[in-house]
Amino acid sequence: MNLSIPVIVMAAVIGLVGIGFYCLLVTRNMIRVVVALQIIVKGAMLALLLAGRMRGQLALGQSMALTVIVADTIVAVLGLALAVQVKRRLGSLDLNDLSSLKR
């Protein structure tokens, strides 16, 4: 089988998104949650670039990826800021301790 660049990138996209979601499903640590989100977004960015390239509109793909980076960074910062507050108020980053709102 011919391992061309698009195929490799596509595999990477699927891999990153899959790993990220798996991590979200199993981790109990807030920092890891933020990291997992980052991993998924990286996969999506790769996909954007790949699609731009395949369509011959790499510039458009790149500009979109840049926008996604900006948005994603804000979300990551927010997530970490919340993590800091959680640690301060609850003394723990464990998601189990962060499940008082239920039912």
Binding site: V33, N96, S99
Partner: peptide
Amino acid sequence: QTGLLNWNVF
């Protein structure tokens, strides 16, 4: 409605 984030992502 377990309140667990992992469950929500699930």
